[in-house]
Amino acid sequence: MVLRCQVEVLYFAKSAEIAGIRSETISVPQEIKALQLWNEIEARHPGLADVRNQVIFAVRQEYVELGDQVLQLRSGDEIAIIPPISGG
């Protein structure tokens, strides 16, 4: 059985425009590779396919690339979709 949890997904800049929302709570496996997590998010918002090669996650405010790294998630965790940055 796959244990699941409720995480808060935050969208910024172009990803927020594509998703049409700034945040949502979704149910995901507690143990999931970063890339699989992206695929679950992209399934909810297919338009995000346009930016998948440009974005990075921030999981609990730490950067994680969309790769094979296994994330251990807990309910309430914050996962931000970070498009290329342009501060300064």
Binding site: F12, A13, K14, A58, A80, I82, P83, I85, S86, G87, G88
Partner: peptide, 9 residues
């Protein structure tokens, strides 16, 4: 800051 801080323009 330009490389790492999540701010968008």
């Amino acid at each position: 800051l330009k490389a790492k801080v999540p701010i968008w323009k």
